[in-house]
Amino acid sequence: MIYEKHYVWSILLRLYHWAMAGSIVALSVTGFYIFNPWTLTNLEGTGLFPMMTMRNIHMLAAYLFTGAIVARLFLFIFGNKQERVWDVLPITPRNIKNLIDTLGAYMYLTDHHDEDRLGHNVLAGMTYVTTIFVGFIQIIAGFYLWLPESSFWQKLGNIIFGTQQFGRYIHHLLMWYFLLFALIHIYLVIWNDLKNPDGLVSSIFTGNKFRHREVK
């Protein structure tokens, strides 16, 4: 058994991934605070600005998140073979077969692993495309809530959400999608890494994956 090393994830994709992961953590924590500030600064004139600080972190992380989403949209079209959107959606017979195999494997029905596929399996790819779309909506809702005096965001937000308050509701609701996604994502990544020794977890740090070959 030998292992071939393959360069799979570009530096931009790895930066995107960690920008997204870090900003989701920061955005969720500060978002919960902004929604329901749990501290109480009863001492006046202390110069503590918890809400202001949380909001500043939220906005900073929001720009990081926006940059990450834009980078991923760019890579969907201009990235390498594994990163392009048509490699991960069930639009070719090869991808549809992979989707069925993946579902089977996740249900412990088969042990099949696509040896010619280095990138995401199609189920993961579909989820990532959905997540990027949800992130896009989340960004529009966020800017609509933050900069409603801007005619552009007001117009766009009014078309999509109707009112500020409904935009706020959607913004809060979609946050739960990201928490749910994070839970399942981390579990399945570890699960896959245990099943198939191709170095899935380390690949998002190093960019390399491994393909194994039997040696006669």
């Binding site: 412990y108 928490l179 749910l180 839970l183 399942i184 699960w191």
Partner: peptide, 26 residues
């Protein structure tokens, strides 16, 4: 939605646990 979100997240966590247990058992 916070109540719903926590419920859904809890169900998902339980599902993850069951899935992992089936894998280990198998």
């Amino acid at each position: 939605i916070d109540k719903a979100g926590k419920t859904i997240l809890g169900v998902a966590a339980a599902a993850v646990g069951i899935h992992a247990a089936i894998g280990i058992g198998k």
